[in-house]
Structure formats: structure tokens, C-alpha cells
């Protein structure tokens, strides 16, 4: 519903808003390996955020990102079965006193700080997941498919920004679902 409304709003407002530099994120490289009932997924992505997003970050707005990594077992005539997966959330903010960018993982509370936002985003874009999968046969003909997505959670932005975010494509930061095959 929110997505549909967003697109409708965009259609209405596209002529009213100033066009800004296009930005976003994309997955450059992704690998997955199954061995000994463990699936290791490594994803490398790169950011090119809109300057409005960077401006908001530099002005104290915390950006929330979500990384989803899922593995499905492919089946014939049936929907693929999810065999492993994890979702991690990060918040990226600027620490004014130290003048550094802080990347905090919500679940582990692990914090990393970076001198520049580019360093922080580069660190965010590289992730490796080791997913246990006890029921995963590691021999053909079983085939697996890995899916990964990194996106900016605009719903977590301050409320006054949300309507503007809805009508500003620069804020629609998402890799979309990146899928690739995985063979034991």
C-alpha cells in the first residue's frame, strides 16, 4: 500500500520537484559456498548515495539500513523452500564531537567508526554471512539459490521527512533482490 501510494505520489509530484543527482546502491559481487552444512555468503556492494541523503546524514539524521541474506532450495513444481537466512539492521550516524561516522549493528551493538561516510558505507557494503543449514544436502542434484538485499529503511526516518522521501527517488536506496545460484 505504502509503495503504491509512493509511486502515485511520485507521478503527481514528479513535475513539482527539482531533479537531483541519481543515487543508490548496487551489489557488485556475490558468492556463496555450501560446505559441511554451512552456507557462506559473501556480498560486495557499492554506494552512490544522493547528496540529499549525505546532507541529511551530516546534519544528524540517523540512517537505518537492512541487510537480508536468504538461501532457498530450488524445487520443481513447488515454490522454493527457504533453508537459511538472516536479517541484520545497521544504523549509520555522524558523531559530531568526534567528527566520525558510527556504524552500529542493532543486534550485536557492535560499533565501528569511520573518518568519512564513504568509508562507513564501504564497510557496510561488504558483508559475509555464515548460515548454518543442518538439512542441506551438499550433493547434487540439489540446487540452491541465494538472495541478498540491502536497503535504506525510510520508515525509520523522522516523520517530517517521510512525505518528502516518498516523492524523492534519491531516497529510494535499495539493491533489490540479488539472486544467484549456489551449487554444493
Amino acid at each position: 500500500m505504502a509503495s503504491l501510494l509512493r509511486h502515485l505520489l511520485l507521478l503527481v509530484c514528479v513535475g513539482l520537484t527539482q531533479p537531483s543527482a541519481a543515487g543508490g546502491v548496487r551489489i557488485d559481487h556475490a558468492t556463496a559456498n555450501l560446505a559441511e552444512h554451512q552456507i557462506t555468503v559473501a556480498v560486495s556492494s557499492s554506494f552512490a548515495l544522493d547528496e540529499d541523503v549525505i546532507e541529511a546524514l551530516d546534519n544528524g539524521i540517523t540512517l537505518f539500513f537492512e541487510i537480508e541474506t536468504l538461501v532457498y532450495r530450488q524445487r520443481r513444481l513447488w515454490p522454493d523452500a527457504r533453508v537459511a537466512g538472516t536479517t541484520r539492521r545497521f544504523s549509520l550516524s555522524r558523531h559530531a564531537l568526534s567528527e566520525r561516522y558510527s556504524l552500529l549493528e542493532s543486534d550485536s551493538s557492535q560499533t565501528r567508526t569511520f573518518k568519512t561516510s564513504d568509508e562507513a558505507l564501504a564497510a557496510l557494503g561488504q558483508w559475509t554471512e555464515v548460515l548454518p543449514c543442518a538439512d542441506c544436502p551438499d550433493a547434487p542434484p540439489v540446487r540452491y539459490e541465494a538472495r541478498a538485499r540491502l536497503r535504506l529503511l525510510t520508515d525509520e526516518l523522522p516523520a517530517p521527512m517521510r512525505p518528502l522521501v516518498w516523492i524523492s527517488p534519491g531516497w529510494w536506496v535499495s539493491t533489490g533482490w540479488h539472486t544467484w545460484g549456489l551449487s554444493p
Binding site: 546534519n59 544528524g60 559530531a96 564531537l97 523522522p158
Partner: peptide, 15 residues
């Protein structure tokens, strides 16, 4: 405390 107050105010100014 200073950092928090400054961050909130900066956010308000931005918003």
C-alpha cells in the same frame, strides 16, 4: 550530553 543536545538541535534545524 553535549553531543546529544547538539545532535538533536542539528536534526531539528535540518528538519
Amino acid at each position: 550530553s553535549v553531543e546529544s543536545a547538539h545532535a538533536k538541535y542539528q536534526e531539528l534545524v535540518y528538519l
